[in-house]
Amino acid sequence: MSAGHHWLVIGGVLFVLLNTAAGLIWLERRMLALWQDRYGPNRAGPFGILVVLADTLKLFFKEDWIPPFADKVVFVFAPAVVVASVLLSFTVIPFAPNVLVADFNVGLLFFLAMSSMGVYSIVLGGWASNNKYALLGAMRGASQMISYEVFMGLSVMGVVILSGSFNLREIVEAQKSGWYILPQIVGFFIFLIAGIAETHRLPFDIPEAESELVAGFHSEYSGMKFGMFFIGEYMGITLISAMVVTLYFGGWLGPAFLPPVIWFVLKTFAFIMLFILLRASMPRPRYDQLMEYGWKILFPLSLVNLLITAAIKLML
């Protein structure tokens, strides 16, 4: 890969990602509206697509407010963490045979490490806000992450055993003979559930549970600092969807009538839609129920999955 090509990929990935995240705001609102028998944003521009622009402008022009009782440095720092960690995770994702930022031989571990970093933004944001609701949200976020990190890591080990690599590009290439969704169906479900918890989206949105904690860890945030949490959440959805596609659905692989990148994008969007549909349909469990579910069901299940995969691999 030439340096020029490399810079082009970095620029392209950044551009597409940030725009996707912003576009998802519109997409989510339209899809939710569709499923909820209402119109959603349909005034600004064709199909209301310019509402994204309006939202972004509004966020930028809002007063950059820091509550006087907050820990100022940490308060400003926290939202940056989530955006940075998610963006860094994208560096290891192979979008197409020659389109990836870093061909990293422990890419999967890097992804896991970065997604663990994301929780710092919740904990720090909730702590620095010096607000009780934010604190409760941060505590919930931390406990949720601790329980879900563990088997998120374990669930993808099945894929590693099958492909024999931590490199995401090699994992995709190893799926040429068959996507891992079939041999790793259990691992897929566990990873997906952990991924939803990771992005704290609706059935697992307890750190912000609006009917209980107002807005949870970001109660005190406004303007673009809130916007960073917002964008971080949508990029997180994209990230988890991309990871699911890479690990279990053959990444860019697909019949030749479409270019590989398009296959990747199509598959990713299918999962993004699943995320939105989940939000439209599921209630929220209590956080102790959520952790019980994690530790008592998903954790043993992912261990069993790992054992069986390893045993089969050994026998073959």
């Binding site: 909820q36 028998d37 609706l202 949105d205 549970a209 009917s211 439209a280 349909s281 599921m282 929220r284």
Partner: peptide, 16 residues
């Protein structure tokens, strides 16, 4: 009630 336990959609159907 459904919204209080986190379900977003029912309230729209029921208000309709």
């Amino acid at each position: 009630f459904a919204q209080d336990v986190g379900q977003l959609s029912p309230v729209f159907y029921m208000f309709t």
